[in-house]
């Protein structure tokens, strides 16, 4: 184009514009129109399926347009995203990604009626409880010393056992250190199953299977639940660390005639040791928190105490427990950070 216009007025223009710079390729308009059509389709669908009845009135001179409030806002956001993408010459794929991100987020939020507007409506209910958090009952926290220790003990036992078993499973799960491919694959699959059940799920399961605090077996169920939780985490994280160890020492151990166990012990373990210790400390932190959470489903410890106080509406006690929990978790965090720094 510039070339076609030029010779006559090229003189001064050439002075001002030293050289033509490459411009980013313009994304295809057709695709953007298609994306806009997708946004319209999404808007229509959200309109049809809307649950909120709030309607927005848009005065346009003589006439008054109206539209369901939330889908319209969502639609405008979609168009704005497309406009920004167009302006920044974003490729078709990325623009599609951005648009679908907005659509999915809107869909998810609309589906569960996500809105913060209900909080002020519940304020009268909330006020009293919030006030309790400003005057926690400190004397109560030390009264349940025993429960704190139970929680801590569950975390320690579960960490020790879980990390050890996790280490063994990680060794078998990683193709680098496992005897053969089928073993590694099946252990990995088993591991995914273990990991797919959350800690509270395991706790409910073990409480149902072997009995909770009612039978005096609460901590046992709790430790077993945390154990499964820990095995899943350590085996996953450590397995990936083992995948990435440097192959040189392993080859050297092989060349020296070491067998599989010797090779794993001599060449693999020292390389992943910092990772293992670090994961173990992380798992210990998680266990302190998780043992509180699973305490609520009846495995004893401070979590059970917490749920008891909540059922009694003793918010001062609840507040005291939560504050103490923050302090405990922070202390454990500092402790493990201190160790990790010395590890490297």
């Amino acid at each position: 184009m510039t070339a076609a216009v030029s010779p006559a007025d090229a003189g001064p223009a050439a002075e001002v514009k030293p050289a033509s710079r490459p411009t980013p390729p313009r994304p295809s308009l057709a695709i953007y129109l298609g994306l806009a059509a997708l946004a319209v389709a999404a808007f229509i669908w959200f309109w049809q399926t809307r649950e909120s009845t709030a309607v927005l009135y848009v005065p346009l001179g003589e006439i008054m347009l109206w539209a369901p409030q939330n889908p319209l806002i969502g639609f405008l956001v979609m168009l704005a995203v497309l406009a920004v993408c167009w302006r920044t010459r974003t490729g078709a794929m990325a623009a599609f990604g951005a648009l679908s991100f907005v659509i999915f987020t809107y869909w998810a939020g609309a589906r569960i009626n996500f809105s913060l507007t209900s909080i002020p409506e519940r304020w009268s209910n909330l006020e009293g409880q919030l006030q309790a958090f400003f005057r926690p009952n400190w004397s109560y926290v030390f009264g349940v010393w025993d429960q704190w220790l139970t929680t801590l003990n569950m975390a320690i036992v579960a960490t020790a056992l879980g990390c050890f078993i996790g280490l063994l499973l990680a060794m078998i799960a990683s193709p680098v250190s496992s005897p053969n491919k089928p073993t590694s694959q099946s252990v990995k699959a088993l591991n995914s199953v273990v990991r797919s059940i959350p800690d509270v799920g395991w706790a409910l399961l073990f409480v149902a299977l072997i009995g909770g605090t009612a039978y005096g077996l609460g901590p046992l169920a709790g430790v077993l639940a945390l154990l499964m939780f820990n095995i899943g985490i350590v085996a996953k994280l450590l397995g990936e660390t083992i995948d990435a160890v440097s192959p040189g020492p392993i080859e050297a151990a092989d060349a020296a005639g070491a067998n599989l166990l010797q090779r794993d012990r001599i060449a693999v373990l020292p390389q992943v040791m910092p990772g293992f210790v670090s994961y173990s400390l992380y798992v210990f932190e998680l266990n302190i928190r998780a043992s509180t959470a699973i305490g609520i489903v009846g495995v004893g410890g401070i979590g059970q105490e917490l749920s008891l106080q909540m059922n009694r509406f003793a918010w001062e006690n609840v507040a005291a427990i939560l504050y103490a929990l923050i302090v405990v978790v922070l202390l454990v965090d500092l402790f493990s950070m201190w160790i990790r720094r010395r590890l490297m």
């Binding site: 040189g248 020492p249 080859e251 050297a252 020296a256 005639g257 001599i266 390389q271």
Partner: peptide, 15 residues
């Protein structure tokens, strides 16, 4: 066999 044949590597391959 490997117990009788030692090997040295370019990148030393020490732990």
């Amino acid at each position: 066999l490997r117990s009788r044949v030692g090997m040295i590597f370019q990148s030393f391959n020490l732990v």
